[in-house]
Design a protein around this nucleic acid. Structure first.
Lengths: 123, 123
DNA sequence: TTGACAGTACGAAACTGTTCGTACATAGTT
DNA sequence: AACTATGTACGAACAGTTTCGTACTGTCAA
């Protein structure tokens, strides 16, 4: 069972779960500004449960959903996916594009520099 | 008409066009190792023409297709898209993930460092 | 106890993406 | 002239995603 990358709607829901922690359908729906039908969110969480993207706690009447993969893990998968699909595996190119797209604060830049040093030291 | 991000199959074709330059259906198909039906590639290029992703030159019997957006431009869009969908706009996080995913050569790391200096100097 | 409310389950429609078969046109070869 | 190669056009099937309506169940207050 080749675990695919989450779809747009699934990712939007996962992001809520990562930020809020385990949540009910109601909470997710409200968090998304009550846009779209309540049952749409419900449906997605049911599908995501089947797919194994989330786990469901049925102890209470309102089921509580929890992301099964960490945010970091998922982000890493998505980056690797984009890297392969659009950048021919060149991390350098992707990093350049990311940095030029959005201007980062000096603190952020320093943090990245630190990471570069880390990586350089290992080889 | 909100120009969407290219689909997986579309991106695969665009990558061929960027690498080879303007190409016929046959050339794209062969470049992809003759996997899948020839007419599938044809169909995609027709669709992509309608969508405005590629331009078609019908001067010869074998039409020649050309990517309408540059590789850089498209990559930038894709990165921005992923940034928004999965990283809440934090380029720092994305860069970290990209660097940790794939180990880069010291030369690449230096190149990125240079870019960081560039960016730092501007603010 | 019954009515309003909040919840789950589920089917189905609309849409998009992917794949291929078939029909048809034309250039070149025998 | 007929046959074969190679090309485009297009419809249709299938799969996945997204959205919502409707049915049903249980809870709680008047």
């Amino acid at each position: 069972m080749a675990t695919r990358r989450p779809t747009d709607a699934e990712l939007a829901i996962l992001r809520v779960l990562w930020r809020r922690g385990p949540s009910t359908v109601r909470e997710v729906h409200t968090d998304q500004g009550d846009s779209g039908a309540y049952t749409t969110v419900l449906k997605f969480l049911q599908i995501m449960t089947e797919k194994g993207l989330v786990e469901r706690n049925e102890a209470n009447r309102s089921h509580v959903y929890r992301a099964k993969q960490s945010e970091d893990h998922t982000q890493r998968r998505l980056v690797k996916d984009l890297l392969d699909r659009a950048f021919g595996g060149s991390a350098r190119k992707l990093v350049m594009q990311a940095l030029s797209t959005k201007k980062s604060s000096p603190e952020e830049l320093n943090e990245i520099r630190r990471m570069l040093d880390e990586l350089g030291r290992q080889s």
